[in-house]
Design a protein around this nucleic acid. Sequence first.
DNA 1: ACCCAGGTGGCCC
DNA 2: GGGCCACATGGG
Length: 217
Amino acid sequence: MLLNIYETLLKFFGFQHWWPTKSGNKTEEIIIGAVLTQQTAWRNVEKSIDNLINAGCLSLKRISGMKLKEIENLIRPCGFYRVKAKRLKEISTYFSRKYGNLHRFFEKPLEECRKELLSLNGIGYETCDAILLYAGNKPIFVVDRYTHRILSRAGVWSGKFRYEALRRFIESRVPRDLKLYKEFHALFDELAKTYCRSEPLCKECPLREMCKFKQGK
DNA sequence: ACCCAGGTGGCCC
DNA sequence: GGGCCACATGGG
């Protein structure tokens, strides 16, 4: 069932090329973007990332040395800029001091990296797993509210949103494949943005056959 | 003028 | 463990 959904979405939307980056500092850009995008539209994150690039500050080392106010001013467009500036600075300082190069961090086993990330302020399950999957190339499935909404409507998952339960459920039903993990999450996001919003909009939805909201009116 | 966006942490029970 | 709240800008 899940693989059927994956194939259907892939055919319908095409390859998504996640995680999108625009600098040469890909790994760090993903980590920074993962924090900035919390509860925020991506277009606003892009403005903040552009500001960081133009200021020559798109690196953990740079951010760790900046004043909080400077960070706030650059990332303002992405919203929640005070909490996010604080989170970014703490996280940047942590990694810059403990690991010069992030390769030193990601060469550790997945579970160790995960525990360490989750212990940091500002990194919850989703941010943690997005960093592990897209920045660290570790096979862990990233789950979010969209995933829950879509799988609920498709009748694959019943019940509330519980991150770990949903993640394990999916991981136990699809091949442990890095490319599939990356792509499936991106496709869930794309579908939710276009056809699976809070109001049912099932007419053109590629999953309309299995969707619980049958095209009413 | 609403509503939502690629969540998280703090506080309460 | 769950339910509620603050955090904030920008686009539809």
